[in-house]
Design a protein around this nucleic acid. Sequence first.
RNA 1: GGGCCGCUAGCUCAGCUGGUAGAGCAACGCCCUUUUAAGGCGUGGGUCUCAGGUUCGAACCCUGAGCGGCUCACCA
Length: 538
Amino acid sequence: MSNTSSLDQSTHWADIHAARIVRERGPKPHYTCASGITPSGTIHIGNFREIISVDLVARALRDRGETARFIYSWDDYDVFRKVPGNIPDAEQFTRYLRWPIVRVPDPWHKQSSYARANEVELESVLPELGVRPHYIYQAEQYQNSVYADGIRTALEQRETIRGLLNQHRTQPLPQHWWPISVFSSFSGKDTTTVIDWDGQWSVRYRCDETGNEEALDLRTTGAVKLLWRIDWPMRWKHEDVDFEPAGKEHHSAGGSFDTARTIAEQVYHQQPPVTFKYDFISIKGSGGKISSSSGEVVSVRDVLEVYQPEVVRHLFAGTRPNAEFAISFDLDVIKIYEDYDKCERIYFGLEDVGEKRRLKEARIYELSQVDSVPAQAPLQIPFRHFCNLLQISAGDIDRVIDAFPGTESMVIADRERLRRRGACGWNWIHHHAPQDFRFTLKSGSEPPLALGNAERAAVAALADEVRARLDVHDEKSLAQAIYDIAAAHQIEAREFFRVMYQVLVGKDQGPRLAGFLITLGSERVLQILRSYQTEDGS
RNA sequence: GGGCCGCUAGCUCAGCUGGUAGAGCAACGCCCUUUUAAGGCGUGGGUCUCAGGUUCGAACCCUGAGCGGCUCACCA
């Protein structure tokens, strides 16, 4: 979809917003798409929705021939408000409360700060998803006095801002209110009181803890920060932001986006960015391993353990941002993969659907790619089948891929995607799949099960059948042979299946038997059954 | 109190720049006795919450009502 006319007709939400940005902001040499968050904890999959939404819209802009930059603001100059439950030595960390998080040490002693630890966790995972924003670190910006003019403007317009904010407050802001907060040079905390501003660049404050007073010059200090509701519109002005979505908690009348919008217009004379509201993400079926109820959050990395990157993108590209949805770790995972594979088949014309549907799915497929769209339809190994093959092969991903028909001629990129899918499948089996789904193949070296004579004879007969004719059977004829053997030994078919699953995988149930035996191949089947063959039942 | 969103098959939802209702699961049936939350094929099932309006035509647009739900009004 390189030509603009087809994108103009696109009904995909990312294209619709891209078109809106160009229309409302007018022609520009480049458009700025923004997002950001306070790195006060692990960036979870709900936060990721904003990031991927911006990435998709930025891509949609580029696809229609515009230049788009994606800036991601880490608000690491925000204060440390409470000690998270998941960090070691939580008690020790209470001493850092009210410090900027960029100065709170990394509890895991790997990064320069707690903020940096959270930043690195996300920054290291985004490239795998094809998301590469330009990061802006607010601590650095403030400490270098980059926003001195913006802060001064807010001080000059203090009463205007107060009036705008009071419109939605139950309690009006107090008389001594200022649109800034100050980090004390004496305590390091933001527990300070602004005393005065000289109308120019000098702000005088008192440290609440030590009682010390000090005057700061906005042009050289790094200690003065705008309050959130003013900081946001100031940055829209500073970066000339054209587009920034926000969560629904910001998007009510009187919410922070609403007040930021009026402050941008009236104080900073900046047209507020095009925006939309995105809904929350919930989690389903985490199998007890990761659940929000236990206080643990689901990180982007956690999702990538189970979903390959294209499928993660597909999840978000294929869902309207204002609809809530659940990320599933249960049996739904299979369907999510099947949906992606189906979308891929539709893109490559391997599956017939109506024209309208085709265009939509094709666009979703494009936006789901980490890099570019594959030149030709990649070989698909369905997720469920992949999981079964992996269990047969003890998790040897390359062996499964090599044994799969058609993989010899595969290009490297396709193979890498399959390997990634295999790794996800293996993780899913071990951490999330229902017990019924899991099995471990017997090796044949275990002591044989104690079976009745008829059962043992039937197993031996099936071994004979496998040895003699497995390669000429198809699934159906082998299934028939299995029933025949059961009947010949006067065993209920149901019981014979149970025995065979016990012999093969030590459970009462397993993958459909005939297909399972064919997949295993005669050599492995006979290996497992060898202790039953040597009995004198023949 | 302000703002926003939803209401479509038994369940979960898709369909929303208006063109005679779709998918998955469930149900039912068939695939030579045919196990399984792990095979294939097929079938049934919906006055699209209600009432008006615009239109040749409305699940979709407008107005109003009912019932979920979310969010802001403290901080960010």
